[in-house]
């Protein structure tokens, strides 16, 4: 393998990681509060509010029902407005965030719903405010599920970032499409696929490890 190809693959890895991590971080900045709002305003939440809940619920469902590839194309004008161009890895982060935020909100909502209502009641009985319950009880008690959700989301975004290669998104997916599909260079395509598998494995492994090591429900024995 010549140095040029190697260089290209390294840049591909860097771009893929940039897109995946960039979109997951921005996605969480938007999705985490949205998930907390969904939980809080939900039927059994801290401050049930059917109107806010239904709006959030509706928006999440709409975005989530659009296939990513179509969302990617639909959002081209918006992407161009935000980052100035519609191709390349930075541009890809925009549709990735839009696609992931509602998904993250749902994952967060589900994780918070798992927290024992008795513990929340106990916190209320101790005089905790809703803000204190969210930050000191809900997000802490649900952290294992939250991290598991974070890992799954990152994996999905890795896959989606590769998919964006079909429309010039950059990263390993882009290389696979350009060389593997248009130029019939199967060897390069296989390498990119192997690299994607490796990255995915590492994400999953680290995620699981962090989640278990932070979970005090499983540390048995004295």
């Amino acid at each position: 393998m010549n140095i040029q190809v190697l260089n290209m693959l390294l840049i591909g890895i860097k771009d893929t990681l940039y897109m995946t991590l960039g979109s997951v971080i921005i996605g969480y900045i938007l999705g985490l509060p949205l998930g907390v709002i969904l939980y809080t305003t939900g039927k059994n939440g801290l401050k049930p509010n059917p109107i806010i809940y239904r709006i959030g619920d509706f928006v999440c469902n709409i975005i989530r029902s659009i296939p990513f590839l179509i969302l990617l194309i639909l959002l081209i004008p918006f992407t161009r407005f935000v980052v100035g161009k519609s191709y390349g890895s930075t541009a890809t982060i925009v549709p990735l965030v839009i696609c992931s935020a509602p998904y993250i909100a749902r994952v967060v909502e589900a994780a918070l719903n798992e927290v024992d209502t008795g513990v929340i009641e106990a916190a209320k009985a101790m005089g905790a405010s809703n803000i204190q319950i969210i930050f000191k009880v809900l997000l802490v008690e649900a952290r294992t599920s939250l991290i598991a959700g974070f890992t799954i989301t990152t994996g999905i975004l890795l896959g989606y970032s590769a998919m964006s290669g079909t429309v010039g998104g950059g990263g390993l997916g882009d290389i696979a499409v350009r060389y593997g599909y248009y130029r019939w260079q199967t060897d390069i395509m296989i390498i990119t696929v192997v690299l994607l598998i490796l990255i995915f494995q590492i994400i999953q492994m680290v995620g699981t490890k962090v989640a278990t090591s932070l979970d005090h429900r499983k540390h048995k024995g004295n």
Binding site: V119, A122, V137, H216
Partner: peptide, 18 residues
């Protein structure tokens, strides 16, 4: 006022991650 009134429960309701 609630902070002045302690409460314990059938299910203990301890914070499991603490």
């Amino acid at each position: 006022m609630r902070a002045q009134i302690g409460m314990i429960f059938q299910g203990f309701n301890l914070l499991e991650q603490r």
